[in-house]
Simulated scan of single mutants.
Amino acid sequence: MEQELVITNSHGLHARPAAVLVEKIKELDADVRIQVGAKTANAASIMSLLALGAGPGDEARIISEGPDAGAAMETVVAILTADS
Rank of each mutant, 00 (worst) to 15 (best):
M1C: 04
M1F: 10
M1Y: 06
E2A: 10
E2M: 01
E2Y: 03
E2F: 01
Q3H: 02
Q3K: 01
L5E: 14
V6H: 09
T8L: 05
T8R: 11
T8N: 06
N9Q: 15
S10Q: 11
H11T: 13
L13W: 14
H14D: 09
A15N: 01
A15W: 01
A15Q: 01
A15V: 00
R16V: 01
P17T: 02
A18L: 02
A19P: 05
V20S: 07
V20E: 04
V22K: 08
V22I: 08
V22R: 02
E23L: 03
E23I: 04
K24F: 13
K24G: 11
I25G: 02
I25A: 04
I25K: 05
I25F: 03
K26Y: 00
E27I: 04
L28G: 05
D29M: 12
A30L: 03
A30K: 05
D31G: 08
V32M: 12
V32A: 00
V32W: 13
V32N: 10
R33Q: 04
R33C: 05
R33D: 08
I34H: 08
I34Q: 13
V36G: 12
V36M: 08
G37V: 14
A38Y: 02
A38T: 03
T40W: 03
A41K: 03
A44C: 04
A44H: 00
A44I: 00
S45T: 08
S45G: 09
M47P: 08
M47G: 01
S48K: 01
S48F: 00
L49C: 07
L49Q: 01
A51V: 09
L52Y: 15
G53C: 11
G53I: 05
G53R: 12
A54R: 08
G55M: 10
P56A: 14
P56D: 08
P56S: 12
G57V: 12
D58C: 07
D58A: 08
E59Q: 10
A60E: 07
R61Y: 13
I62G: 08
I63E: 02
I63L: 10
I63G: 07
I63D: 13
S64H: 11
E65T: 14
G66M: 13
G66Q: 09
P67R: 02
P67S: 07
D68M: 00
D68T: 10
D68G: 00
D68I: 00
A69D: 04
A69G: 04
G70A: 12
G70W: 15
A71M: 03
A72L: 02
A72I: 13
E74A: 11
E74I: 04
E74T: 12
T75K: 09
V76C: 11
V76F: 10
V76T: 02
V77Q: 14
A78Y: 14
A78N: 09
A78V: 02
I79G: 07
I79P: 06
I79S: 04
L80V: 02
L80I: 09
T81D: 10
T81C: 07
T81G: 11
A82M: 08
A82Y: 10
D83Q: 14
S84Q: 10
S84M: 13
